[in-house]
């Protein structure tokens, strides 16, 4: 009886060990009686053996495997190194981002504080005074406070000259300290 395509497929499945026990029993029974089918099975076995020997001939030798492992090893070392490096960079990046966010938050909360200090420059004329002592009628001494443009911004009366001069000195010292502080703030701002 000639072997058809279905038989061929069944024989191959048989060689692949994928038939159910029942199918194997049925096929064994047929093989015992059908010589054409048995010959075909032998032929398929021979072809398979040839292919398997070809696959085995493709197996690499020890040198090739070693060479491959060296390549893989080198590649994985590089991967591990970069992975470590990127991990560290991630930490640094996170820290930098936290600092930046903190800075932005502080800036958002106290946005005008530095400007207030800048605005207290002596050139605004808001509280710069030039005390001048001058005796007036009836032995009253006046200390006149003037701004840089000569405008009178305040007058303080004293009974005697010493008190008036003392006040004048105090105001002068106060102005001097005020200027020093303002210059200090400027210096700090310049350094940033």
């Amino acid at each position: 009886m000639p072997v058809n395509e279905t038989d061929l497929e069944q024989l191959e499945t048989y060689l692949d060990d994928e038939l159910s026990p029942e199918e194997v029993r049925e096929l064994d029974r047929r093989l015992a009686t059908d010589s054409a089918l048995a010959d075909q099975l032998d032929e398929l076995r021979a072809q398979r053996a040839l292919r398997v020997s070809m696959f085995r001939a493709m197996e690499p030798n020890d040198g090739e495997v070693e060479s491959l492992l060296k390549r893989v090893d080198g590649n994985l070392h590089r991967q591990a190194h970069w992975s470590k490096l990127l991990g560290r960079l991630r930490y640094i990046g996170s820290a930098a981002a936290c600092l930046f966010v903190g800075f932005m938050i502080s800036h958002a909360i106290w946005p005008t504080q530095p400007h207030d200090e800048i605005n207290t420059s002596p050139n605004t004329g808001s509280h710069v005074a030039q005390p001048v002592v001058s005796p007036t009628h009836g032995q009253i001494y006046q200390v006149v406070l003037q701004d840089e443009n000569g405008n009178v911004i305040g007058v303080q009366n004293f009974d005697n000259l010493n008190d008036a001069r003392e006040f004048q000195n105090d105001v002068g010292q106060l102005q001097s300290k005020h200027r020093q502080i303002q210059n200090g703030i400027r210096l700090i701002q310049d350094s940033f």
């Binding site: 696959f55 085995r56 493709m58 197996e59 690499p60 090739e64 495997v65 060479s67 491959l68 492992l69 390549r71 893989v72 590649n75 994985l76 991967q79």
Partner: peptide
């Protein structure tokens, strides 16, 4: 498994690509 992996790659890609490259890339 490196020996068998190399053999499989060699059988599938033949001479159309480097089997070593295939295994290395797959492993990486």
């Amino acid at each position: 498994h490196s020996r068998r992996l190399l053999a499989i790659a060699r059988a599938i890609v033949g001479t159309r690509a480097s089997p070593e490259d295939v295994v290395q890339q797959a492993v990486t």
